[in-house]
Every structure is written in structure tokens, then in C-alpha cells.
């Protein structure tokens, strides 16, 4: 059941993205930013977390989940460590993913070469 919920909610979020892609001049980069910022705003308003609680990875794997973590982390940081926490909270909550992206991104780029399309 958990998996079905994750599949359906994650899939539905992506359908919203596909509708935007096919009807606007958006590139995937625009799409990433739009979903990230939607996640930040919804997360700050406390509206995204219920979706994560319901669908698990279905809501946390889309980039909007990353935005939600940023917002949640910042709020938590501000509440616990005041001004310094407001600055560090977002990065603390998402630090694992960002560090992984930098390490794996660099490593893969060193190991592999791009291939032409056919």
C-alpha cells in the first residue's frame, strides 16, 4: 500500500509538471525551479508535510520535497537557534543530498564521457 501511494502521488506530481512542459516554453530547468519553490512555499505554510506523511517517497523524492525540507529546516533552525538557525536550518536539513550531488556529480563526470545522440 505504501508503495502504491508513493507511485501514484509521485506520478501525479510529475503529470502536473508534464502539463506545464507541454503547454509552455518551459525547459526542465524552469520546471525544477518552479517545483522547488512551490515546495518551499507549501512547506513554509505547512501544507506539504501532510502529503509527505501520506505518500512518503511519493512526495519527498520530487524536487518539491527538497523545497519542503529546506523550508521545514529553516523554520526548525529559527525556532531552536534563533538568527543563526534561520541561516543554517535549510542547509542542515538538505545537506546530505547536496553533498552527495557534488561528490557523485564530480566523480561521474571524471569517470564517464558523454555520448552523442542517435
Amino acid at each position: 500500500m505504501e508503495y502504491i501511494k508513493a507511485f501514484i502521488v509521485g506520478g501525479l506530481i510529475c503529470i502536473i509538471g508534464q502539463i506545464i512542459l507541454d503547454n509552455t516554453k518551459f525547459t526542465p530547468a524552469h520546471l525544477l525551479l518552479t517545483f522547488l519553490l512551490s515546495g518551499v512555499v507549501l512547506g513554509a505554510l505547512g501544507l506539504y508535510q501532510p502529503l509527505v506523511d501520506f505518500a512518503g517517497a511519493g512526495a519527498s523524492i520530487p524536487i518539491s520535497g527538497f523545497g519542503n525540507s529546506l523550508a521545514k529546516g529553516a523554520i526548525k533552525g529559527a525556532n531552536e537557534k534563533a538568527l543563526i538557525g534561520a541561516f543554517t536550518g535549510g542547509i542542515e536539513a538538505t545537506g546530505a543530498g547536496v553533498a552527495a550531488i557534488i561528490l557523485f556529480g564530480y566523480t561521474m563526470a571524471v569517470i564517464f564521457n558523454p555520448k552523442t545522440k542517435d
Binding site: G17, L21, P28, L32, P62, I63, G97, Y106, V110
Partner: peptide, 24 residues
């Protein structure tokens, strides 16, 4: 997959590795 590949965090990783490889 279009947006189905772009929006998950794997797509974010793709957006980093693709240019990094290309500009080696």
C-alpha cells in the same frame, strides 16, 4: 518520461552530471 524524469531528485542529479561530463 519528460517531467517524470526531470522532477524527481534523480533529475536534479542529472542536471548536474550532464553539464559536468560535457565540459570535461
Amino acid at each position: 518520461g519528460g517531467a517524470g524524469a526531470a522532477i524527481p531528485i534523480t533529475g536534479f542529479a542529472n542536471s548536474i552530471v550532464a553539464p559536468a561530463m560535457e565540459y570535461k
